[in-house]
Design a protein around this nucleic acid. Structure first.
Lengths: 204, 204
DNA sequence: CCTCCATACGGACTCAGGTCCGCTTATAGT
DNA sequence: ACTATAAGCGGACCTGAGTCCGTATGGAGG
């Protein structure tokens, strides 16, 4: 979570708790995110190239790549802000998403909420997951979702909680959700109900 | 299953039950598959470009793409033959893979066998699944695996058999399996056992 | 205020996947 | 055998992702 893109070397948390980011760099980062958001909204994610973003932001391509690593990093950075709400709800929000409900209830609530999040930003999430193979696992936020699921599954005293956390998240990939919604024509509500039942099964 | 690549218009089954394939076309198809197999074995899948394959096969790039659609199609064609064994076992082989065992036993056996198949051809399967987004769902063989799972799950009287079939296959994506094996350092045997337990949960 | 250099910039360049289209040829029909 | 024609061929070409490297500059230390 946190970092607004960038691979390994940590950089400013989103709020700007600057460890040492040059002013021009911060300005460019903001320009790029704003331009990307606008272009994606206007033309659709797939129709926008990295050159487009760079040009619209009035920035060189190198800058773009230095900041965000690759296209999926840019998508992750844009999603970062939107994930914040969900993440906060999990950690400190009211039940059933936050602490206070049973592990079973919390996991079902998480799965439903995560499904909604993915469905609500399909293209962006898809991009962040599929731009490069294995990108999905490497996002900071993925680690958080994963840990949350693992934790709740372990509380439920299920075998292989870690692996089942991966299974649950693998089931809710952007491409999988897209397939259910678009190719299979399922309604989001039906999916949500089915996913809740699935969680129930996973918890034995 | 069946088609040796090619997008929509069906073409010769692998054995060559020619619906109408020109002799030179068949020859080129074989040359390409042979060259691709050799190059992939020699240099590793990711280090081989489509130009390499075309050149090694003594064929133009256009021919390559006409035959196999895209890189993932080429991978699928190469896997085709290796899938055949597993597919035959499911349909007509001895239990527990084939008919004769309980749905639960058969599904556990399938999951374990499929895991082994994916792990045994990680790079190729990965390529066939990730070359283009959504490629995974569109393979002929995927439909077969899916239907098989759906069928067994339905026999087990589980809710949402179709969706759970997708979940099971989503859990056994090449990238996911690679992550478990390489990044997480799990042993294939442990994974197999865990996947069997997972199937048990899925069947209530 | 000045200097210095780590940090950042930008755009030319490389590389690989995928498309296009004019030419060639296998083969069905006569 | 002889066409006519649909199927196939090949490689030049296009596009877009990601890299490289010479140049510019923010800002810390003097």
């Amino acid at each position: 979570m946190a970092g607004t893109g960038v691979d390994r070397r940590e950089l400013p948390l989103i709020s700007g708790g600057t460890v040492h980011e040059r002013a021009d760099a911060a300005r460019n980062r903001r320009k790029v995110l704003a331009a990307a958001e606008r272009l994606f909204a206007q033309r659709g994610v797939t129709a926008v190239t990295m050159d487009d973003v760079a040009a619209a932001a009035g920035v060189g391509k190198g800058t773009l790549y230095r900041r965000f690593g690759d296209k999926s990093g840019l998508a992750a950075a844009l999603l970062d802000e939107r994930e914040r709400d969900l993440q906060a709800s999990l950690l400190t929000g009211p039940p059933p998403l936050g602490p206070g409900a049973t592990a079973r209830e919390r996991l079902a609530a998480f799965a439903a909420a995560y499904l909604g999040y993915v469905a609500g930003h399909l293209d962006l999430v898809s991009l962040s997951q599929t731009a490069s193979p294995g990108a999905r696992m490497r996002t900071g936020s993925h680690r958080l979702w994963r840990q949350h699921c693992r934790h709740l599954l372990a509380e439920g005293d299920v075998p292989d909680p870690e692996l089942r956390a991966d299974v649950l998240l693998a089931a809710l990939t952007a491409e999988q959700v897209r397939h259910w919604l678009a190719d299979r024509g399922h309604a989001l509500g039906d999916l949500e109900a089915a996913v809740r039942r699935l969680v129930d099964s996973l918890l034995g």
